[in-house]
């Protein structure tokens, strides 16, 4: 992971900063210049709540190199109450607890590590609401 590429996304990775289209109300995450629904160009800032539910999930057993030490790990598609969608790891659970529709909370965690002495890359992961 290259540092500028990581730091540019910090507002989304740390604070879930999204944008609400003033034309059609669609929540766009991450923010874009053009609304994918109505092609509108004006937005107001809006942070996603840290809640959501699982739309689908998998447990990954074969990972790319940066994640090799983490296998097996769960990943899911999460929908927040605002209607935004994101992909995140689902952690701190037994895989047998995973199910479509399960409620989760998005928490700040370490996602990757830049080599042995490089920066630590943080972002959101999902934990089950209990």
């Amino acid at each position: 992971m290259i540092v500028p590429r990581y730091t540019r996304e910090i507002p989304q990775r740390f604070r879930l900063e999204a944008a609400e289209c003033t034309g059609c109300g669609k929540i766009v995450f991450p923010p874009r210049r053009i609304c994918p629904k109505c092609r509108g160009k004006t937005f107001s800032p809006r942070n996603l709540s840290r809640e959501g539910k699982i739309l689908s999930y998998t447990v990954i057993h074969v990972a790319a190199e940066p994640f090799e030490l983490q296998i097996p790990f769960a990943v899911g598609i999460i929908e927040t109450p605002e209607g935004a969608r994101l992909t995140a790891q689902i952690v701190d659970c037994d895989f047998s607890e995973l199910a479509i529709g399960t409620r989760v909370r998005l928490v700040m965690r370490k996602i990757q590590q830049e080599g042995h002495a490089g920066i630590l890359l943080y972002g959101y992961k999902a934990v089950l609401e209990r």
Partner: peptide
């Protein structure tokens, strides 16, 4: 790259999520 692969999801992982949703 920034919003899927960054979180460790692989291509088999993406299709696995399609499969899980289709099964459901």
């Amino acid at each position: 790259q920034e919003y899927e692969a960054f979180h460790g999801v692989t291509f088999p992982g993406l299709y696995a999520m399609i499969a899980r949703a289709h099964m459901h």
